[in-house]
């Protein structure tokens, strides 16, 4: 009585879709399996077959396509961290993925899995959101379509991608231009599950003077049922001078629209709220410094393991 009766490893997206179609909803996509298999550990599998998409070459590439950086959904976190393109243009993503699990997990866990698992605190997803990423979904009937990433999230653990019928094929975000940069930070707790108490990602573009913020994107989790973009924080940053005051105000704006929950054994609402005011300004500060090319704020991805949320960087004071 195997848990699933077949394990397919298609070579092409079409083949994956055809296999899914063949099972009529009784087969499911798997990538690294670091979420799926752990979930199924002590539960019966609600499907008959698995369709492993990690052998599809197209889904395993990172490439530049005009203004876009396109990341295949089956690219692993380790590959993301190692990718010069992503480090440069999606620094927050490289940073977010660098803190997921250990090397063994990062060697198999994929960005697509992180997105489709749809946890409000998933590190890769939070980073993608700040990068204003789009997701490409392929389904047998409708072909492929690009949709804004935020449209994928229906609720905690609930994705709009139906992994029994569709394949998330790629994620893309715009390459970083002059005076643009992104950053990621999170607060963990040493007890219990390896998901952040709070993760924050920020992408900024500075104005020509370098002293003002032209626009910013701010994402956080878990502060809502889905990975969250704080439009108010973004509005507060837009057009504002690069100053600690601005960053603090952005955090206050974020607080107005975030509703972090008290979760037993993890964190209280109060703590999460305070972490928003603590971490968000910090991540904005790092992103701004990066956009200016300040050396202290360079990502330190080779030692991905910071003791403290603030461990990696020190602004010269």
């Amino acid at each position: 009585m195997p848990k699933w009766k077949a394990y397919h490893r298609p070579q092409h997206v079409q083949e994956a879709l055809a296999t899914l179609a063949h099972y009529q909803g009784r087969a499911r996509i798997v990538a690294g399996g670091t979420d799926l298999f752990v979930e199924l550990l002590n539960a019966p599998a609600p499907f008959e077959a698995l369709v492993d998409i990690t052998a599809i070459p197209e889904l395993r590439t990172v490439r530049r396509d005009g203004p876009w950086i396109v990341v295949g959904s089956a690219v692993t976190h380790a590959e993301i961290v190692a990718s010069p393109l992503i480090r440069r243009h999606g620094t927050a993503l490289a940073e977010g993925c660098s803190v997921i699990g250990g090397p063994q997990v990062r060697n198999v866990a994929t960005l697509g899995g992180n997105v489709v698992h749809a946890l409000p605190a998933a590190d890769g997803t939070i980073a993608l959101l700040a990068l204003d990423a789009e997701a490409q979904v392929a389904s047998s009937g409708a072909g492929r379509r690009w949709i804004p990433l935020s449209h994928l999230f229906l609720g905690p653990g609930q994705s709009a991608v139906d992994a029994t019928r569709e394949v998330l094929t790629a994620l893309r975000f715009r390459a970083t231009a002059e005076r643009e940069a992104s950053a990621f930070g999170r607060v963990m707790r040493p007890q219990g599950v390896a998901l952040p108490i709070l993760a924050v990602a920020v992408a900024v573009r500075l104005d020509a003077s370098g002293q003002g913020i032209e626009r910013a994107r701010v994402s956080l989790g878990p502060v809502a049922p889905v990975p969250f973009r704080s439009r108010r924080a973004e509005a507060r940053l837009r057009g504002a001078p690069t100053s600690p005051d601005t960053y603090r105000q952005a955090a206050e704006a974020a607080l107005e629209e975030c509703s972090p929950r008290t979760s037993r054994y993890r964190a209280t609402r109060e703590y999460r709220e305070e972490m928003i005011t603590t971490l968000l300004p910090r991540v904005v500060e790092v992103a701004v410094a990066r956009a200016r090319g300040e050396a202290w704020a360079r990502p330190r991805l080779e030692a991905v393991d910071h003791f403290s949320s603030f461990g990696a960087w020190r602004a010269p004071s």
Binding site: Y7, G33, T34, D52
Partner: peptide, 21 residues
């Protein structure tokens, strides 16, 4: 991590690595 083996040189947790993969 007790189940770590190298696959094509990379460490992975073999406990959740599908054999057919």
């Amino acid at each position: 991590g007790a189940c770590t083996v190298l696959i094509d040189g990379q460490p992975v947790n073999s406990c959740i690595f599908p054999a057919l993969k």
